[in-house]
Amino acid sequence: MQDMNLTGLFIDLMSRLGLNYEFLATGYEAQVWRDGFITTLYLVAITIPVSLVFGLIFAACLTSGRLWLSAPVRGFVELTRNTPTLVQLMFSFLVLNTVVSNMVGGAQNNPLSPFFWVVAVVGLHVAALHAEAIRGGIEAVPSSMIEAARGMGFSQFEILRYVQIPLAFRSSLPAIVNGLISLVKSTTVGNAIAVSEITYASIMVWTQRDNVVEMMIVLLAFFSLINFVVARIGQWVERRLAIPGYGL
């Protein structure tokens, strides 16, 4: 009861300002809209780890010095960086998804949902951005440090794991945070294949209510908020990991 009153108060206040938020009082539309927020947050929360893990793997391949590892990854990174995410998503969804469906025998058996394709495409796209940043960091590790590690009997993988990546991660953190912010923005392409994230839900509402401006205000505020939080967490991690006397 208390909650209903607050919603009513908000709608009333906003309509005095000339903004139409009446849909909040209805059950169905408000529910779709709230689910949109949750879907977007969920999408972001899953895609960020995916992009970081693949970014590390790609960067390790790029700096491995073995052509059979670095050349395909280099090709993939250049392809994803220089083609639109939307085209990649449509290609994956219309082509790869159809191929998978044909392989498992019919679309009804296909376990891959549109949600999966958004996570895969956006995650790998941003992983390519991360890979470039981390590669720069790995190459910036002084060669004397690597020689010292080799002298202490570290294997190639141990050097990567204990020396290069910890230092590279710190120096590339600002670039990684930029990548994560573009990840948050890229999740909106999901509405092209009917993943009901917040943009999709907002479109559902404004086609019924014709309140585009109101929905846009909320959308812009929401994305500003997520990006602000991501940037703040990035700064916090950066401070936590800072080594006195190394880096900036």
């Binding site: 909106t188 509405n191 943009t199 959308l219 500003s224 990006n227 602000f228």
Partner: peptide, 9 residues
């Protein structure tokens, strides 16, 4: 505001 906005939005 606009630097943080998705292009699609």
């Amino acid at each position: 505001i606009f630097r943080n906005a998705p292009a699609l939005v």
